[in-house]
Design a protein around this nucleic acid. Sequence first.
DNA 1: GTTATCAGTATACTTTAGGATACCGGTATA
DNA 2: TATACCGGTATCCTAAAGTATACTGATAAC
Lengths: 138, 138
Amino acid sequence: MKKKALDDYLCCMEAIEHDKRKCPTHISKDECISALLPVKDALDILSGKWKIQIILSLTFGKKRFKQILREIPGLTPKMLSKELKELEMNELVERKVYDTAPVTVEYELTPYGRTLKPLIGELHKWGSKHRKRIIARS
Amino acid sequence: MKKKALDDYLCCMEAIEHDKRKCPTHISKDECISALLPVKDALDILSGKWKIQIILSLTFGKKRFKQILREIPGLTPKMLSKELKELEMNELVERKVYDTAPVTVEYELTPYGRTLKPLIGELHKWGSKHRKRIIARS
DNA sequence: GTTATCAGTATACTTTAGGATACCGGTATA
DNA sequence: TATACCGGTATCCTAAAGTATACTGATAAC
């Protein structure tokens, strides 16, 4: 189920439709469904209301909590805290605490977090075309 | 603000951070924020709970309402109806009604809907790597 | 002495997403 | 005559996401 898992999924859907037990690439229905889990994972990770904005705001380098808060209008500390925790759990952002007084906390995009770049680029590319299409329609 | 809107956004964030009115590429803060709207659009369109599964299920060709319902376990008619309407609004899916008795309704992925393929591919690619990383961690 | 800043947390609330169940009128089948 | 299928809709409910507002304790600046 390696690299072509998505193709396997499609193949499996066809198998289901035509009432076969297995698709030609020999994956079961369960394997088939699990083949699209990664897509959902990626969507879940990015689809918090402020995630993209936070990630992009960290693209230029580390920032402090209040600094992000000031930069993004409408964002509340509760939401920022929640979103940062989720990003941290997914190893996209690193939280560093310095023993100063008062305490200093810095958030930084990890190298792994930067691997999102092509994906966000693709989202932006499709989204832009879509905006034009929808605006042109009205 | 054409093609490099995302770069403009990043540039603008830096400008905001360093308290400038404009970033070197001369877009305002409002333009800056609107530069990431397309990313959010794309995420919103794809992030319904059943959207991806429905889109993929239609990749092989047109299908009828009940047919999709049977194919996707757990999906209720209410949700399918809602998701299909949203996909239709975004011109990703076309709904065709045939004057038979009882009425026949077919849903088909539009050519435009198929332009999602690279994006979904990218989501799957990143999501798969992420799964491996997270599973390996525990 | 007062106020502001740091990085958040606590509590209460509204809004949205999604699920469960029942139902519709028309037709074909048993 | 009874049942099942077609493509949905209506109603009610729960759970999750997000918002608003207030607050913390230590410190530094005015």
